[in-house]
């Protein structure tokens, strides 16, 4: 079982002999702990804590024309919330998130279940499905610039053989976001499948055998045994997938720049444009603060899940 493995890992320290453990603690002083943690803490301070604080300060600092400071307040947030593009980006990110996460995970489960048996053919098929995972996202984007080209691109060229007319995938506000979603599914589904495979491995075969004796078919076994036991795995995948949805924008920058008509503009791209294209660092900081808050609440909410998921040794 998936939990069995992770619980073993979590429980392991408890099996130590307490007397000796205490001796070690006293032998090594708190000051040593300080020195061991200092390098990491110092670096985190420079590149995580200070930037967060800076984003916060920037977000509440008001600037006049030409960057003249004119005091503090919530004006940047007001302007952010008054900006239709921001809400559009938030909405797009939501659609992008749902559109990417749900299909990738469903695909990962279906493929994982279908390819769980360790045959040579399955190993080959798994490799084929996992390959996109190791590609740089920008490389995927440059490939998809051709894949998605209307008429002559890889997709249309082969769809045409099925009698499907050319589509301007990236050129229409109706399809561009879905094209980006398709790219993300292709890039990430294999990654999630690996976790599903590991989760499946941990399900005791006896459970299936017993259910089979009870006359349960493969479908009912999937829903009654496999899926419930995969739950912790899926929760873990869900967290990673959400992080990816918020923090990956290389493909958007390379393929669409957020267009057409802002239809592929997601939050991080919005921040990027506000900061660099419109030189509006206050509004960019306000949006950053909101994203950081969202991600932090995600990490607080999912600490347990992350802790468990971190130990899938296959």
């Amino acid at each position: 079982m998936a939990q069995a493995l992770t619980e073993a890992a979590i429980l392991a320290p408890r099996l130590e002999r307490p007397a000796q453990a205490r001796r070690t603690h006293s032998a090594i002083s708190t000051s040593l702990a300080f020195w061991l943690l200092a390098p990491s803490f110092f670096l985190l301070f420079l590149f995580t804590y200070v930037p967060i604080l800076e984003a916060l300060t920037q977000a509440v600092s008001l600037e006049g024309f030409g960057g003249k400071p004119i005091g503090y307040g919530l004006g940047n947030f007001q302007r952010l919330f008054a900006d239709a593009s921001f809400w559009k980006a938030l909405w797009n990110n939501l659609v992008y998130g749902l559109g990417t996460v749900a299909p990738s995970i469903i695909l990962a489960v279906v493929l994982g279940v279908a390819l769980q048996e360790a045959t040579r053919l399955n190993a080959l098929l798994r490799t084929m499905i996992v390959f996109p995972v190791v590609l740089p996202l920008v490389a995927v984007a440059t490939l998809f610039a051709f894949v998605l080209m209307p008429g002559v691109g890889l997709l249309d060229h082969h769809l045409a053989k099925l009698g499907i007319a050319a589509t301007n995938w990236l050129g229409s506000p109706d399809t561009a976001l879905y094209a980006i979603i398709g790219l993300s599914i292709w890039k990430n589904a294999g990654y999630y499948m690996l976790f599903v495979l590991a989760g499946l491995q941990a399900i005791a075969p006896e459970l299936h055998e017993a259910a089979k004796l009870d006359g349960a078919g493969p479908v009912s076994r999937f829903f009654r045994i496999t899926l419930p036991l995969l739950k912790p795995t899926l929760a873990f995948i869900l967290v990673i997938a959400i992080i990816n949805v918020v923090t990956q924008i290389d493909h958007v920058i390379v393929l669409t720049g957020g267009g057409p008509s802002d239809s592929t503009n997601i939050i991080l791209n919005y921040i990027f444009q506000a900061a660099h294209q419109q030189g509006d660092s206050g509004r960019a900081a306000a949006a950053t603060v909101i994203s950081v808050a969202a991600l932090l609440s995600l990490s607080v909410a999912s600490l347990r899940t992350l802790e468990r998921g971190m130990h899938y040794e296959s």
């Binding site: 420079l46 992080i243 950053t288 950081v292 991600l295």
Partner: peptide, 19 residues
């Protein structure tokens, strides 16, 4: 420490560049 877990650096790209 764990704060950084979900904060992939691109999110803090603007202040990090300043740093």
């Amino acid at each position: 420490f764990l704060l950084q877990l979900t904060l992939a650096p691109p999110i803090l790209i603007v202040p990090n560049t300043l740093m």
